[in-house]
């Protein structure tokens, strides 16, 4: 038992002073310093990447970069024109395939059957898809498109990227639709809208900023994907032809190919291509996030 009335020394007021002399305080302060240092360290790679892109890629940032074809081994000059066009084309195909499909499925999830068994299955599947290794999306598009059409193509590349975009588009669109205030839905239904008219005229327009944010985030991710394109679009050293059913170049595959090149010029072009790609991805990404932040409070 503890004797409460045991005489003890009167605590000094100085005990309340803050000071590193206390062991516990010292430990706490030390941990704060370590955690702070680790946080700063976690930011260093991004700064390093950006610095290298500007330093090494910036040197080649001339009009020629966008207008010329990739340099062959041992050649000087050259650019990434065809790869940029190819990336844009394949991302456009992927957007056209994934967005209507993903938004319609999201409308089902948020509006028509939120508590159905199908909706539960779709949400689970979307989570599975968002964890799908991109290389497997490539294998799938190879089997489903390349083998079926008999050729590597922009279409196959777009299909692979669409698989990767779908979960982002679907899940963000569902969130955006759910965030539309109930009273807007009630106003529409109370006016005598059919469920479709309510979605089409009122709910979807109100959710549009959120839906587009999701699309832009998905686009930013798809533009940088490389692995699936190795299995579906391959590469080409030439400008795109009218025929979309032929191997198609992309910035990402160009960077991969040139990264291990023994020729200094090709490595420089890889850095310049990275700069272009990262600028493309980050601008889309930052624009999407800023827009989402601005249209959120309502």
């Amino acid at each position: 038992m503890i004797a409460h009335d045991e005489p003890r020394a009167r605590p000094a007021a100085a005990d309340l002073n803050w000071g590193l002399g206390h062991r516990r305080t010292l430990l706490s302060a030390a941990l704060t310093v370590v955690a702070g240092a680790m946080t700063v360290a976690a930011m260093v790679p991004l700064l390093s990447v950006l610095a290298m892109l500007i330093y090494r890629g910036g040197q080649r940032l001339t009009p020629q970069l966008f207008l010329a074809l990739p340099p062959a081994a041992g050649m000087e000059g050259g650019g990434v024109g065809n790869a940029l066009v190819g990336t844009l084309l394949m991302v456009a195909i992927a957007t056209a395939l994934s967005v209507p499909f993903g938004v319609l499925a999201a409308v089902f999830l948020a509006e028509f059957g939120p508590e159905t068994r199908l909706a539960g299955a779709v949400r689970f599947v979307a989570k599975v898809l968002s964890g799908l290794p991109s290389v497997l999306a490539g294998l799938f598009a190879y089997a489903a498109v390349v083998l079926a059409t008999g050729t590597y193509s922009a279409l196959a590349g777009g299909a692979a990227l669409a698989v990767l975009m779908l979960p982002t588009v679907l899940l963000t669109a569902e969130q955006a639709l759910k965030a539309v205030p109930r009273r807007m839905r009630e106003a529409a239904v109370g006016m005598g809208c059919t469920p479709t008219q309510a979605v089409w005229h009122v709910v979807l327009p109100a959710a549009l900023p959120g839906v587009l944010t999701g699309v832009m985030l998905a686009v930013a991710r798809a533009a940088g994907e490389t692995a699936p394109l190795l299995f579906t679009a391959l590469f080409s050293d030439y400008w795109l032809t009218r025929n979309p059913m032929s191997p198609t170049p992309s910035l990402a595959v160009l960077i991969f190919d040139f990264s291990s090149s023994p020729f200094r010029n090709q490595v420089e072009v890889a850095w310049a291509a990275s700069l272009v790609l990262v600028a493309l991805v980050m601008l889309t990404n930052v624009a999407a996030r800023t827009w989402a932040a601005r249209s959120a409070p309502k």
Partner: peptide, 26 residues
């Protein structure tokens, strides 16, 4: 109304089928 709801439900079902398709193709 009927068509659009059907279309939305079909899209949702296709999303499920896509995963089945990925597994089946590979």
């Amino acid at each position: 109304d009927r068509s659009f709801r059907g279309l939305a439900a079909t899209s949702a079902a296709l999303a499920v089928l896509l995963v089945v398709g990925i597994v089946a193709q590979i």
